[in-house]
């Protein structure tokens, strides 16, 4: 997976065209704004369908300066989704740890789906 910060290969000449995310990846302020938008939109859509967690993981990783950080961004989106999930349950969230095995599905999904999406960082 590319880790050159611009979305290009280890040699800059290996990239036939610059990444459309290059500027966002380079500039921390733009990156932060983009990430915030991704998180908000991602969580909003994740309340509609779980595929949004894949998309949110993908989008978060795409604005990351490196692929490794892309993975970290995706997992962070998952963590935020978990927090949002617990908050959405209200007092019932206290029951979650006891709800085996279905809680395993929830935890696996909240981290696994964004992680799957982070593969996008190696594509664009």
């Amino acid at each position: 997976m590319s880790d050159d910060g611009s979305g290009e290969g280890s040699g800059s000449t290996a990239q036939p065209s610059p990444s459309p995310f290059a500027r966002i990846r380079r500039e921390p302020r733009r990156r932060a704004v983009a990430l915030a938008v991704v998180v908000v939109l991602g969580l909003a859509l994740a309340s509609v369908h779980w595929l949004a967690l894949v998309a949110a993981g993908a989008a978060a990783s795409l604005v990351a300066p490196t692929a490794r950080r892309g993975v970290a961004y995706a997992l962070s989106v998952g963590a935020l989704a978990l927090v949002a999930f617990a908050v959405s349950l209200g007092p019932s969230a206290a029951s979650l740890p006891e709800m085996t095995p279905v809680v395993y599905v929830a935890v696996a999904a909240v981290f696994g789906l964004p992680l799957l999406g982070s593969l996008a960082r190696g594509i664009v």
Partner: peptide
């Protein structure tokens, strides 16, 4: 089907929690 039911935020099962 499992994700439809138990995915965080969107899982239908969690509607029952509220």
């Amino acid at each position: 089907a499992l994700l439809d039911s138990f995915a965080p935020l969107s899982g239908d099962a969690w509607d029952a929690a509220d």
